[in-house]
């Protein structure tokens, strides 16, 4: 129980406003199997190439897209979407 609390408690997003942070999105090309869900959920940043694999338009993740990006991170079948906060 305590560990679970610590999980969200220590997440930087909880204490810092997301617009004060630098947030980046990355895709692990080795894990990616080209399901294409990320491009459905985050078309602003991700488009698919001719084989259905994602191309990142920008590494920078604007705060407005953070929730969508988190959804893509969570729903990727191979967990290949990575969001990093600094």
């Amino acid at each position: 129980m305590a560990k679970e609390v610590a999980g969200w408690f220590h997440r930087p997003a909880f204490w810092l406003r997301s617009d004060e942070m630098k947030t980046e999105i990355a895709i692990n090309p080795i894990a990616c199997d080209g399901h294409g869900i990320c491009a459905e959920l985050l078309p602003e940043l991700i488009e698919l190439d001719e084989w259905g694999f994602p191309i990142l338009k920008s590494r920078n993740l604007p705060p407005a897209l953070l929730d969508h990006a988190r959804r893509a991170e969570r729903l990727c079948p191979t967990l290949a979407v990575i969001i990093r906060e600094y």
Partner: peptide, 9 residues
């Protein structure tokens, strides 16, 4: 054969 763009492209 790990990354799609490589093994398909």
């Amino acid at each position: 054969g790990q990354c799609g763009p490589c093994y398909l492209g």
